[in-house]
Design a protein around this nucleic acid. Structure first.
Lengths: 247, 247
DNA sequence: CAGTGGTCTAGACCACGCC
DNA sequence: GCGTGGTCTAGACCACTGG
């Protein structure tokens, strides 16, 4: 019913399983440096390229992280942070930041860049045919790791000089709440997945093509006019989004 | 601020971009078979392995799909289906099925297997220390493609003989609604991402390690007792989940 | 500058689909 | 049985990190 009578899996896949078993067993501990690719290849009697393919799988699963020139390191286990998604349109509590604080983890919302730019998708989402628009990039760093890359689009009028009012604890909504007189409201949020772009992968320290959780959202002001379209890409092994219906 | 002064990207990455440009330009049309790896490699003057790495990226992005023995085919563009997630705990309308029907797409919810089994995670979620539990696997097929793989856990009492009452239009909730006298309610839903397992990847026709959207959820009966824990893995280029706050 | 991961070419064999 | 993608080995060079 499954496939042919269980053909022997490819060698690199067997190697992956061997290494995964060692990680599970604690042979290699989080933070440890693995033996070099050549050593491991020799030990298991395979070519270095085959070993690389195996290690690549593990990297994609978020178990290890290769660093050129330094070695391949065992990551700490995916203790995914469950970010609560509000079920009503008015709540703007950031469960993410609240949770990080209660767990005593240091986080910083860094502004990566900001420029006046144009994007058809953003224009459509914000229903802004002629407004001058600004794009703001930022990323959330937790315990030395980048967990989330964000891109926000909104009218330049509201986002001008973000750098000067940026607070590393509040992110883009902090800027907006300061400037938009009226209260903010959710219009929609969406959740999906995607392969990491080369740029995001570099920032997050994962392989290009690794899964990232994509959360998009549109926020409007009190009159219902869309003011911000945000697109967040988060490390799949660090972040997931939860809806609690028990309220 | 980004990295070193733009080192020349790796050759395989340049090849990826070349091919991606051709796909964007329509040089290769959806449904077409690409020239073989050897031909393409020769044409661009690279080794076949380098070409393979490039094609692998495109496959991971959901743009092409290699089929052993047959060739590499251009997939139709990711017209992601937006599945509406209800904001109240009682609604059990399946926006997915409704949308597929209005779009005139044929779908089938296939039962893949069912067995009495045990799983610590499922036991914990369902708060069932000693109940005999059953696992039910199914997948949703749309237009010849598998879009979603599901695994559901619940008390054997409610899931016995699923095969005999399974309707290909209703899936697991259909079974449950038939048997649970009381109305069902959501307890929570969560959204994340993950690399596709080898098994799921095979069923969905994607590469192992490709991103999949993971939707988990716990459902309870009218008295609030958890009765079903579901874990869905969906193709990232076909499904995303949306919350509309504008109701 | 030694050692590590990252890339690339070369050439071979295998498993599978299709004709 | 031919052509396709899938795997594996061999050996080389490069880019980067760290002492």
């Amino acid at each position: 019913m499954t496939a042919s009578p269980a053909a022997r899996p490819a060698l690199y896949r067997q190697v992956t399983d061997t290494l995964r078993a060692r990680l599970d067993a604690g042979t290699y501990q989080p933070g440890d440096r693995l033996p070099s690719e050549s050593i491991l290849a020799a030990e298991l009697g395979v070519h270095r390229l085959t070993m690389r393919r195996a290690l690549e799988e593990l990297a994609r699963e978020g178990l290890v992280q290769p660093r050129q020139g330094a070695g391949t390191f065992v990551l700490r286990r995916p203790a995914t942070l469950a970010v609560t998604v509000p079920l009503t349109r008015g709540e703007f509590t950031s469960s993410l930041r609240a949770q990080l604080e209660t767990q005593g983890q240091r986080y910083t919302d860094r502004l990566a860049g900001s420029e006046v730019a144009d994007d058809p998708r953003a224009r459509r989402e914000l229903r802004a045919a002629r407004t001058r628009m600004r794009r703001v990039d930022s990323f959330l760093e937790v315990d030395q790791e980048v967990w989330i890359c964000s891109t926000a689009w909104g009218p330049d009028r509201l986002l001008r000089d973000v750098a000067s009012v940026w607070r590393q604890t509040d992110g883009i909504y902090g800027v907006l709440l300061d400037r938009a007189a009226l209260p903010l409201r959710y219009v929609w949020r969406s959740f999906g997945a995607e392969p990491a772009s080369v740029e995001d992968a570099g920032r997050m320290g994962v392989k290009p093509g690794s899964p990232v959780v994509v959360r998009e959202g549109l926020t409007a002001d009190g009159e219902g006019k869309p003011v911000l379209w945000v697109r967040r890409r988060a490390r799949f092994d660090r972040v997931r989004y939860v809806l609690h219906y028990d309220s």
